[in-house]
Amino acid sequence: MRVRAHYSLLNEIESGPNATLPALEPLIARWHHTRIRRIDRYIQLCVAGGLNCIAGQPLHPQTGVYLASRVGAVSTSAKTMIQTEQKAEMPKPLHFVNTLGNSAGFYLTQLLGLTGTAVVVSQEWLSFESALLHAWLDLQQGRIDCALVGGFDEVPLPTSHQLERLDQAHISPPPTHLTEGTHWLLLERSTSPSGTNLGAPHWLADSQELDQWLQQQKPFACIQTSFTPDSAEAELLARHTDHHQAFTRTAALHGVFSGAALVHLVEQSPVRAPIRRALHLTRGPEGPYCAVIVSLEPV
C-alpha cells in the first residue's frame, strides 16, 4: 500500500475541572466553508481529520473508508445515559443518532461524495491497525483503488470521569494530561517502486512470536514503538536493530494513539541507505503486538 497523503492531530488536554478542548471548527473550515450543524466532537474529529488528510485533492470514486475508534462517541453516549438513567427522560433524537457508530462516517462520506465501502472497526489499543488491515484486505484484492484510513478518539469532559473510564483515576499521581486525536492515511495500491509504502499489519501474540518474526525480516533502519518498552523488550529490539525509538506521551493516551505513532513514522521516514525500511510496532497494556513495515520500496 502506498501512502498518498497523511494527517495527524494530537491534542494534549490538561486534566482538571477547568480543562478546555481546542476548537476543531477552524480545521474543518479550511476545507469546508459552511459550518456543519448537529455534529458532536467525536464526529468533528472524524471530519476534521479526514478533510485535512485529503486536503482538497480529487478522490478516486473507488475509495473505501476505514474508520477506527477504541471508545466511540463517549461524550454523547454519556449525555444520553444521563438523560435516561439520571433524569429519567427520553434521550434527545439527535444525541441518540450521534451515539451510533456510523454517524461520523455518514458526514465524512457525504462531504467527500463517496458511496462505496465504509466500515467502523475497533480492536482495543490496536483499533487503528484493525482499520488498516481492512483497507489492506480490500486494496490487495482490487476491490478498491484507494483507501482512506482514519482513527479518532475524543476526551469527553469532565476529565475526572474519563480518567475513571480509562482506569487511570487511581494511579498515584494521576495523569496531568489526556490525549485525543485523529490520525489518517490515504493509501493506494503500490504500482511503482516509489514513495512510502506500508505492509499489511501483522499481529504477534507475545514477545516470543515477535522475536521469531523479527528474525525472519530483512533489517530495519529503525524500529519505532508507540509504547515505552520494558527492559526485556528493549533488549529484544536491540537484537534486531541498531536504532529503536519510542513515540510516546506521559499523558493518559487515547485509544488510537498508535495511529499518531504510525503517521509520525511515515512523516519522519527514518530510513537511510542501504536500509530503506523501518518498523512501526505497537501493543496494548497486555499485548498482543502489531507490526507494520514502512518502506521506501513496495512491501
Binding site: R38, M90, K92, P93, L94, V97
Partner: peptide
C-alpha cells in the same frame, strides 16, 4: 425530520 423530532421532544 430529525429537527422536527428534536423540536417535538
Amino acid at each position: 425530520s430529525l429537527d422536527v423530532l428534536q423540536i417535538c421532544m
